[in-house]
């Protein structure tokens, strides 16, 4: 099977500091990929490069069987994106925003209206369809972003922290949704800090640390290395095992006391 996304030797620097160091991996159609890593590991940068928001310094990206340089912007019509921060045009209503996004994807107004209302209904925010986004909670904004990424029925989803701000029930709905989207043949590439979700949902897990891929495989295979949960594996691979000591240091700092050497 030909990969839907193939990245080889991808590099990127900011202010002379390497953020991505020869990152290589591939994603097959219909897979759910959990893309995880500590803050600043380069996860969002990878997605931004794939989406053409920033230019890469080196390496190759093939999407839908072609290098992305070969495409005009039309390839983005096959992508659904949820950004890390729920930034929206706040003076608009949800209806206006979704209609605008639908228009950019070339969808008919009636179709967008119908889909948006139904999707908002399913996520429990239909009553806010005509409400200003400025008045929405973080979770409600996240739902609007998720809807806007699915309006055009894309082939591959890039979701950056899709569960941000969602309540427990909504998280369950989105998890189910991800599973059903996979069943529908969609490819899902998402990053999250919620290890439990990544562990249960992903067909394959990619761990990025300091701009390098340090693990790539199904959880069942990876856990053999760490012999435990994904969280333990993550800690081992990212070289982090000082949780208790750091919590203690924090508490001492809060109380204005000196930390003792470990």
């Amino acid at each position: 099977m030909e990969p839907i996304l193939e990245i080889s030797h991808l590099t990127k620097q900011f202010d002379g500091k390497p953020v991505l160091k020869e990152v290589s991996f591939s994603v097959n159609p219909g897979e759910i990929i959990g893309y995880i890593g500590p803050n600043g590991a380069g996860k969002s940068t990878t997605v931004k490069i794939i989406l053409g928001m920033i230019d890469k310094d080196g390496g190759d990206i093939r999407l839908f069987g072609q290098p992305i340089e070969n495409y005009d912007v039309s390839y983005k019509a096959r992508i659904g994106y949820v950004p890390e921060n729920a930034d929206l045009y706040e003076t608009l209503t949800a209806k206006e925003y979704l209609l605008f996004i639908g228009e950019l994807y070339g969808l008919e107004e009636e179709e967008v209206l119908k889909k948006s209302e139904q999707m908002m209904d399913a996520l429990g925010i239909k009553d806010s369809f005509n409400g200003r986004l400025a008045s929405f909670s973080k979770g409600m904004r996240q739902k609007v972003l998720i809807i806007s990424s699915l309006l055009h029925d894309p082939d591959i989803l890039f979701w950056d922290e899709p569960l941000n701000g969602l309540d427990a029930n909504s998280v369950q709905v989105i998890k189910e949704l991800l599973w059903k989207l996979k069943m529908d043949g969609k490819t899902i590439f998402y990053s999250s800090h919620v290890m439990d979700t990544v562990e249960k949902l992903s067909d394959r897990i990619l761990i990025l640390n300091d701009g390098e891929v340090v693990a790539n495989g199904p959880f069942e295979e990876l856990k053999e290395e760490a012999d435990g949960t994904l969280e333990q594996l993550f800690n081992t691979l990212t070289g982090f095992d000082q949780h208790a000591a750091l919590a203690e240091q924090f508490l001492l700092a809060m109380k204005g006391e000196e930390a003792h050497d470990a």
């Binding site: 989406l51 053409g52 928001m53 039309s74 983005k76 019509a77 992508i79 929206l88 950019l104 994807y105």
Partner: peptide, 8 residues
């Protein structure tokens, strides 16, 4: 982010 990620 909001427009550049769409086919624009």
């Amino acid at each position: 982010i909001l427009i550049g990620t769409k086919p624009v």
